[in-house]
Write a protein that binds this DNA or RNA. Sequence first.
DNA 1: AAACGCCGCAACCGCCGAGGT
DNA 2: AACCTCGGCGGTTGCGGCGTT
Length: 367
Amino acid sequence: MGRAPCCDKNGLKKGPWTPEEDHKLITYIQLHSPGNWRNLPKNAGLQRCGKSCRLRWTNYLRPDIKRGRFSFEEEETIIQLHSILGNKWSAIAARLPGRTDNEIKNYWNTHVRKRLLRNGIDPVTHAPRLDLLDLSSILRSTLCNQSSSLLNVSNLLGTQALLNPELLRIVSTLLSLKQENPETLLQYLQQNQLCNSINTELQNNQNIMQLNDHHQFQTPVSDVSSLLNQTQFMQAANNVEGVLFSDMTDFNCQNSQENVIPSNLMNQAFVSQQAPINQVLYSSPSSSNPTVTVPSQSSSLQSVLNNGNQNNFNFDSVMSTPLSSPTPLNSSSTYLNNSGTEDERESYCSSFLKFEIPESLDISDFM
DNA sequence: AAACGCCGCAACCGCCGAGGT
DNA sequence: AACCTCGGCGGTTGCGGCGTT
């Protein structure tokens, strides 16, 4: 455990603490309080530097330290606070009684961070990461979890579409084809490697069909182009267009050729610190519920999309990793009990990433 | 059973700001 | 103003445990 001694400067010991050293330190502090950390080792009879003693005490020996697994509440609080404070571990620790900054930092790096990444979320910015998103799974769930003949726009948009340039490229291409020459749409589907990838996905999963309760789709399918006939795609494209592109003027396929999200879409979709867009964006692709709830009021997708005048979004901020990103907050918090498996925790993580702040948390402290 | 690789976490390192001289 | 000391903080390291092959 711990780092091995790298040197013996001044004859001071480094590396893991022995029980005897711990006992000396505890005994001394209980009798005298730490006082001057620099003088403590000498007074306590320890061959350590003051800094080492302080770290050992604050991170391990302090009597009020709570050890053991982090609870859901603690984990939720950590993520929420991190979304506000960034890597200010001491500030986060100050709001988690019994936990040290070092412990929280370790927990973040070894557990939470990975979980967020698995959910397609940048653990630094708390924004979705384009390179973590999976197009085929999006389309599969979109195409295969329908109760109507329409594309599930809320699923598309709510999950990842706003952030996935590949999906946007495809959607834009479909729309463009629809407008230019509907006959070419099917040809596009057949030519685009997307067909193959989706086909593969579909064939690999015999259980995901039931594409439509009312239409002629059958399972399994051997060719996505037969699955998605032109009429249905027109319908779907219309539906997507109506919601997604209603407020756009210069969205064209040139952007898509470059596999770049159109700037106006980015501006509208990513918007804004005010809109609780994370309610839309933090849903897990692996969530058991494929349909994402899109906020309905001022935070609704439509208002987000219509908010075209806000051009302050910087796409670089998603791809790079700024220190932290202020995140809009809601009030009430949903807690689960402390038990649960890692998977449950992960699932829960996906849902609570709506960043609801416990009422006990005084946000004004951070402002 | 042995070798290997991954992961968790205690501990170190270097930097910074506050306070004192 | 310049320097020094100290405490605190965030980033990083690497040992040891554990799971996998």
